[in-house]
Amino acid sequence: MDAQLLNKLQQTHTAVWNEKDRATRDAMMQTIYADDITMYDKDSILTGNTAVSDFIDKLFAGDANFNFTVTKPMESTQNGARLYWDIRTGPQPNVLTGMDFFIVENEKVAHLFVFMDA
């Protein structure tokens, strides 16, 4: 995976997870996520951009201070990439950390695995 694609994925993925306006977020998602993206986390499997955007809406509804930040530059191998992040929530910052692992097909994220640290 070339550096230009990695940079685009990192910048847009971060912007998507911080965007509160649904229409803006959905437009950004279409530039890097496959229409039938599958997102996996410990509690659920979501399919499609609408389901992922609904999930992000729920995060904002639960905490208006939600902020997704990259902690290490994205790294890739073949058609996979990983991105380490933290999420700050609440008026008194509570920090959650984790990693997203992407499987990229045709220059779009087909699968997104979300790992949250304990």
Score class of each variant (00 low, 15 high):
residue 35 D to R: 06
residue 30 Q to I: 02
residue 85 W to P: 00
residue 43 D to A: 15
residue 32 I to A: 00
residue 71 T to G: 02
residue 112 L to G: 02
residue 16 V to T: 05
residue 67 N to R: 13
residue 55 F to K: 14
residue 56 I to M: 14
residue 16 V to R: 01
residue 103 I to E: 08
residue 41 D to N: 13
residue 83 L to I: 01
residue 115 F to H: 10
residue 21 D to F: 01
residue 41 D to Q: 11
residue 86 D to V: 06
residue 49 N to H: 07
residue 70 V to M: 07
residue 89 T to P: 06
residue 62 G to S: 07
residue 97 T to Q: 10
residue 79 N to I: 03
residue 54 D to V: 02
residue 89 T to E: 11
residue 61 A to Y: 01
residue 108 K to M: 04
residue 112 L to M: 03
residue 35 D to M: 12
residue 95 V to K: 11
residue 110 A to D: 05
residue 110 A to H: 03
residue 60 F to Y: 01
residue 97 T to V: 08
residue 110 A to E: 06
residue 112 L to N: 08
residue 45 I to N: 08
residue 82 R to H: 10
residue 100 D to C: 01
residue 101 F to M: 13
residue 73 P to K: 08
residue 92 Q to F: 11
residue 42 K to I: 10
residue 111 H to Y: 04
residue 44 S to K: 14
residue 101 F to P: 05
residue 47 T to R: 15
residue 12 T to K: 05
residue 56 I to H: 10
residue 29 M to G: 02
residue 79 N to E: 09
residue 88 R to C: 05
residue 33 Y to W: 14
residue 52 V to G: 13
residue 26 D to P: 01
residue 113 F to Y: 09
residue 28 M to R: 02
residue 6 L to A: 05
residue 20 K to P: 05
residue 83 L to M: 03
residue 107 E to Y: 06
residue 77 T to W: 06
residue 66 F to K: 08
residue 47 T to A: 14
residue 42 K to D: 05
residue 3 A to M: 06
residue 41 D to T: 08
residue 50 T to Y: 11
residue 118 A to T: 04
residue 53 S to D: 12
residue 30 Q to V: 05
residue 1 M to K: 04
residue 13 H to W: 08
residue 64 A to H: 13
residue 42 K to Q: 07
residue 48 G to Q: 11
residue 16 V to W: 01
residue 40 Y to K: 14
residue 96 L to F: 14
residue 54 D to R: 02
residue 98 G to M: 02
residue 93 P to N: 10
residue 66 F to Y: 15
residue 6 L to V: 05
residue 67 N to C: 09
residue 44 S to Y: 14
residue 94 N to W: 07
residue 66 F to R: 12
residue 84 Y to F: 11
residue 17 W to N: 11
residue 30 Q to M: 08
